[in-house]
Design a protein around this nucleic acid. Structure first.
Lengths: 144, 144
DNA sequence: GCAAATTCCTATCTGTTCAGTAGATAATAT
DNA sequence: ATATTATCTACTGAACAGATAGGAATTTGC
């Protein structure tokens, strides 16, 4: 039940791009430095989220990446579903018919509900939300 | 973000024991047949959840396992935390101080909240709840 | 007290995924 | 031209998932 480094790093990259949204194209070199993540590894991860409706990209000197939309238009769920494949806790939630036991499966409703909760929450949080909370909300959450 | 077979099989074993709660000790052989899971694999998994406050066990002929408490006293969260270790989506939720970046980490609140949601839901569902829903609730969930 | 049934214990194995490194090629601004 | 950047392909080492296998210890029924 863990989110892989791919997903976590992808989210941090997107947040980094959101923080520097106004500065034009941002190179992986800069993101790598700020986030302290191997640039080579970031290369592989950004390939996954480098879709036309997600990122704009430019090669060559002064090139890099920038968000295709405003930070409020990306949800954490969007990003994680790209890198993690699916956020459902068990495969049979996505394709129940592939399991022979699904018809009478007692546990499937639990997994289905869990999947809904996870997806609904992650789809309710945008990059902009995360930027807005910053220190303030962090402190609140930390006390809980 | 997947629950392993260990966790899923453990839940199914516990549900099987709950369904035959009144029948004394239940052997792994029977559970294995009903659940169509290798008995050898079940042996290893049940060792993890075979705690005194969880299961009663008897060796030898006519031996087996039975629940130590009533089905309503086990939550899915209890069972999965034993087999999966922790249900938090990232390690830093459990020990934030181990990450050097945690102080200003923008993503930590998201993971913390997600972790709460997951744990709260799974702790709200007992074995008895699952038995009660059976076909009826299953149909409702399926339509959603 | 013996045989059958059962849990318990330890070791082993195969394939896959995780997390990352490395090197070369293609495009672009200056 | 040159430096800078993204893009592509390949490789690797360690850990984990998901089991299988064999035998020892314990208990019940007879």
């Amino acid at each position: 039940m863990k989110v892989s480094t791919k997903g976590r790093y992808a989210l941090r990259m997107m947040l980094d791009l959101a923080q520097h949204y106004e500065e034009g194209f941002i190179s992986l070199k800069d993101i790598s430095k700020r986030q302290e993540i191997s640039k080579k590894y970031l290369e592989q991860i950004i390939i996954i989220i480098n879709k036309p409706d997600f990122l704009k990209t430019n090669r060559g000197s002064q090139g890099g990446y920038k968000l295709a939309k405003s930070p409020s238009e990306y949800t954490v769920g969007d990003i994680l579903r790209l890198t993690e494949g699916s956020l459902s806790p068990v495969d049979c939630v996505d394709n129940p018919s592939e399991c022979e036991r699904y018809a009478g499966c007692l546990t499937l409703p639990v997994w289905k509900h869990l999947s809904e909760i996870i997806n609904d929450y992650l789809d309710s949080v945008t990059l902009q939300d995360i930027l807005d909370t910053q220190q303030e909300e962090y402190a609140i959450n930390y006390v809980i």
